[in-house]
Design a protein around this nucleic acid. Structure first.
Length: 347
DNA sequence: TTTCTCACA
DNA sequence: TGTGAGAA
């Protein structure tokens, strides 16, 4: 088939088809004598795929990568690209939503004061910008993709960071004690251990993680769990979706600023009565953190100091304060030196 | 008709 | 991320 025929068939310009070729997405054979391109069924299918992915908002470069996976017939990798795409779109949606909110607040201010209070508006804009950057600045410096295959074993054998692991997970299930028809979300699920505990109690669960390799393991262990690529700062679900949100041993990977954003995100995807349960490594308060780090550096354990600073352990009192401000009733329990479990129910 | 190239938004 | 014009 010649270029105009498929152009008509697919409702695009011949020019666009040549453009896709130029970008390396397709490579139709050219006839010897006149250099006309000829297209086979396979190429039409490929073009259709390109158009669909384009429709889904993928850039040419991303489509190129995705098509490479199609060529390799790697279903899982293609799925990953689609999910990655979805999570990117979700972040963009959240950003737009946030800009909308900021604008609404500005409109509100204008109406209230009948004049431009530049200072207020500047603060709003700054706040919005900070949130956006906070989202953008997240990256996986711990390389969880790399750790995925040995993660479960590491957890079992690590009596430091993952001390009382099973106990903590069981306690979350117990504290949340979900009803049969409820639906929960596990953020930073890793290989799905926490979500799995709910699932085996016949509770419908969604599990998200930013690492595709972790999710692979998770799907292998729990084939009927819903899994999605995503993170704390852009939870890939619509508003008011879940009855409860849980997370274990993951919250400390966020900076303090990002933690607040994450809590706001959790509240967004929760139904109004939705509850939150977090098990993680924390300091009881800021004073204890300072003292502990001082103590360590006096002992010359600078590596440990750095490790703890890098992991941004939560401050229990900060967390409780946020919940209090946002009208939650909380209870918490200290499991060991650093491991706490916090449970929050809206008033 | 189609191809290619250059410029343009 | 495409499009338009013009020459071959």
């Amino acid at each position: 088939m010649k270029i105009k025929e498929i152009a008509n068939k697919l409702n695009i310009s011949p020019r666009a088809i040549r453009f896709y070729e130029e970008k390396g997405l397709i490579s139709p054979v050219k006839q010897e004598h006149n250099q006309y391109r000829t297209f086979t069924e396979k190429e039409i299918w490929r073009l259709q795929t390109i158009l669909s992915l384009r429709e889904a908002g993928m850039t040419i470069e991303d489509i190129k990568k995705a098509l490479a996976e199609v060529d390799k017939e790697d279903k899982e990798e293609l799925l990953y690209y689609l999910e990655l795409q979805r999570s990117v779109m979700f972040s963009q949606w959240l950003e737009l939503k946030q800009i909308l909110e900021t604008t609404d607040q500005m409109i509100g201010l204008m109406k209230q004061q009948q004049s431009l209070d530049l200072h207020n508006i500047f603060e709003l804009a700054e706040g919005s910008k900070r949130l956006r950057e906070s989202r953008k600045n997240w990256y996986d410096k711990w390389n969880f993709d790399h750790k995925a295959s040995s993660h479960d074993e590491y957890v079992r054998n690590n009596n430091d960071e993952y001390q009382n692991y099973e106990e903590a997970l069981d306690m979350i299930v117990q504290w949340v004690s979900p009803q049969q028809n409820e639906w929960g979300l596990d953020i930073g699920t890793g290989t799905g251990n926490l979500a799995g505990k709910f699932l085996t109690r016949n509770i419908k669960m969604a599990a998200i993680d930013q690492s595709k390799e972790m999710l692979k393991q998770c799907r292998r262990k729990f084939p009927n769990m819903e899994t999605k690529l995503g993170n704390f700062l852009a939870i890939p679900y619509l508003d008011e979706d879940f009855d409860f949100v849980v997370t274990s041993f993951a919250f400390h990977h966020l900076t303090h600023e990002q933690k607040k954003l994450a809590l706001t995100e959790m509240r967004r995807v929760l139904k109004p009565h939705g509850r939150i349960c977090i098990a993680d490594l924390m300091f009881e308060n800021r004073k204890k953190q300072v003292e502990y780090l001082q103590d360590l550096s006096e002992k010359g354990m600078n590596n440990t100091v750095k490790a703890i600073q890098d992991e941004y352990y939560s401050i229990l009192t900060d967390l409780l304060e946020w919940f209090d401000k946002n009208r939650y009733i909380t209870k918490y329990h200290q499991i060991n030196d650093f491991l706490y479990i916090v449970y929050a129910v809206p008033i």
